[in-house]
Design a protein around this nucleic acid. Sequence first.
RNA 1: GUGGUUGUAGCUCAGCUGGUUAGAGCGCUGGAUUGUGGUUCCAGAGGUCGCCGGUUCGAACCCGGUCUUCCACCCCA
Length: 458
Amino acid sequence: MAQKPSIPKGTRDFSPSEVNKRNYIFDVVKKHFQTYGFQPIETPSFENSETLMGKYGDEGDRLIFKILNSGDYLRKVDMELYASKNSTAMTPKISEKALRYDLTVPFARYVVMHQNDIQFPFKRYQIQPVWRADRPQKGRFREFFQCDADVVGSNSLLQEVELVQLYDAVFTDLKLDGVSIKLNNRKILAGIAEVIGERDKLIDFTVALDKLDKIGIEGVSKEMRAKGISDAAIEKAAPLFALSGSNLDQLSVLEKLLQSSSDGKKGVEELRFIVETLEEMGLQSAALKIDVTLARGLNYYTGAIFEVAAPDGVSMGSIGGGGRYDDLTGIFGLKDVSGVGISFGLDRIYLVLEELNLFPEAIDRSLQVLCVNFGEKEALSSLKLVSKMRSAGIKCDVYPSSAKMQKQMKYANNRNVPYVILIGEQELANNSFVVKDMLKGGQETYSLEKPEEFYKSL
RNA sequence: GUGGUUGUAGCUCAGCUGGUUAGAGCGCUGGAUUGUGGUUCCAGAGGUCGCCGGUUCGAACCCGGUCUUCCACCCCA
């Protein structure tokens, strides 16, 4: 009995046109990764569970897809554990592998494992799918691609500057005008928490602050209070809620606010360097904006934090993000290697380009020329012509059967083929071929002796 | 993980408080047109109404479960 075919929740099939468009984005991103000197690596789709677990917080652990052990996977579970029905305790017993959740942690693992073969600073890029057991929404999938570029082994803030330029270069090339690159620094957040006397509530404080544009000042205060942050502290942090003006204006406000925190001052200094350098360099189409409310969930960032927002008017979550993490490889035993990186959310960029109609028109042109098939002899002649054109790098084909003209023309039309070649009895007789321009409707005759007179201009 | 939402032809969607053979547009196939597509006209094919169960004389419609879609939380690209 035939079963109804289906694919798992949050996954997708990609049709030819979609693959073409996705490849277009990949190619642009890859091109710029390479011009900035990044080298490609790839890592396995699944890792040992202990490599991933505990790296993304409790929420992250929940969203990691675990792979059931092969064979008799209940063998290692004793009766007591089984009876307890404690999934968290049982998971490591029945699952030792898990699907990659992002590209950064596997990269850190890679760096530590290959540290003797790597020239530092090491700039790597990686474009591969990742998996999250999240509940799907628009622009949110359970399988999606990340395009990451990271530098490890350099503390220089020039890396941050370059990464912002890289974002700008890619989005400019994609013709996606008006994206904003939001910039913050974890040290500033830490400094604020310190100054308001809530150092140990840093995470709760930043998570709440991150929601400012969504739930407003009152909502943020309410959430902070609920997390046990004192009214006095919230009062002290109030200037942050109303921060405005140019990047440099905001920096001076922050500088004053964070006088007494060495961490905070360091953060301001770093931000200032990045902002001033980029102002000197200039950006092509993106806008760089300091945003102290930018927190991002990942708990390994220690310095700069980036997030890219789609142009105004497009409802889409962030289309990229990243930051500096001073000690990611420390977890795997390699100390004092600083890293900084950015990520492009391919699937979301796709949706944004689609919404704004920014894909090049020619992207679906999978065939430039189609020869109509009039029968055995004529087709043979067409095939010879097609061979020549193929050698010249032209995408062309002969219709495989001598179906009705109408059907063949319709096929060419539906496939968006700009030129149709006709070689019938007449043409065969005088050694010529007719080229029909499907857009303009006219047609011209060429000699089979000199086919290049037609195709050299394609 | 919590709350809500969606599912009818290949696609986009109608379908009345439950009532006989479930409709439209587009697309597809054939014809008008034996060497000309994108326009027109005519005809035709195509549906276990997401799936399983229940209520009912009778279910696309009501109820329960499940899967899926999208949305708000949570979190995130």
